[in-house]
């Protein structure tokens, strides 16, 4: 068992320092675990996800984050990605003129280079890509299209999961992956994520809804409000939350 993520007393806010969002957050994630963070809208759950990925809109003011024993906060976003952090975004951005397969080839080769492996040529890469895509129900057509341009919500999320499978991260952070998905799409996505999960990696799921947690069963559930985790528990906590709402926890 490996300590994948350790967040100690983290304080963070907007880059220009005008707003403090995270106030004293603590979290430890070990390999093999699935954690879920739930909390009211606008509390800053996505901020945590972006901070882990290194988006420059947010900056830490105090505290530490260790990723597999290394200081995460000094690493650039692409370094964090190569080290094994994957953020599945709520609203993946479109990049006109760049095909999905071309984009993914660059991403995979960047990782291989980091690992000291040789880069794949177009033909070898396409083989791997097609197989992975088939498993997830992603059509070859979608691979030729410009990435996220004109994709429906479900297509975008399926593509995020495809990327996850290709890059095999140590820590996959799913930011509201369930938003905008119908039940079938949700099932496919959950299946893909579950297949990916093993004893050597970990998942951090950020969500509002119980539905996803019924499909991807968490080991730990944390309730996040007021800038930090106010309560942690097992899956039962999620059910309690569903029945009683956030207010009951905030008042406690």
């Amino acid at each position: 068992m490996e300590k994948i993520l350790e967040i100690n007393n983290l304080f963070a806010g907007t880059y220009d320092g005008t707003k403090e969002i995270i106030k004293g957050l603590n979290l430890t994630i070990n390999s093999g675990e699935i954690h879920a963070i739930m909390g009211p809208n606008g509390a800053g759950k996505s901020t945590l996800a972006y901070l882990l990925a290194g988006k420059k809109d947010y900056a830490p003011t105090a505290g530490q984050i260790q990723f597999c024993g290394e200081n995460l906060l000094t690493m650039k976003p692409e370094e964090r990605a190569n080290a094994g952090i994957f953020l599945s975004m709520q609203y993946p951005v479109a990049i006109p003129g760049v095909s999905t397969s071309n984009f993914l080839k660059h991403a995979l080769n960047a990782k291989r280079k980091y690992q000291g492996l040789n880069e794949l040529d177009a033909a070898d890469f396409l083989k791997i890509l097609r197989n992975t895509a088939k498993e997830l129900g992603v059509s070859p057509e979608m691979l030729k299209r410009e990435i996220n341009v004109g994709f429906s919500g479900g297509e975008k999320k399926r593509l995020e999961v495809l990327q996850m499978k290709l890059l095999e991260p140590k820590l996959a952070v799913l930011d509201e992956t369930d938003s905008g998905l119908d039940i079938d799409a949700l099932r496919t996505v959950a299946q893909g994520v579950n297949d990916l999960h093993n004893q050597n990696n970990a998942l951090l799921i950020i969500t509002h809804h119980l539905d996803l947690l019924n499909l991807i069963k968490p080991d730990f559930v944390h309730i996040y409000a007021d800038g930090h985790i106010i309560r942690s528990g097992s899956k039962e906590l999620a059910i309690e939350l569903e029945q009683n709402g956030y207010k009951s926890f905030l008042e406690a």
Binding site: A81, M89, V93, I95, H106, A110
Partner: peptide
């Protein structure tokens, strides 16, 4: 950011 988060420098 999207490209970087996928490991691309």
């Amino acid at each position: 950011f999207y490209c970087k988060q996928r490991g691309i420098d």
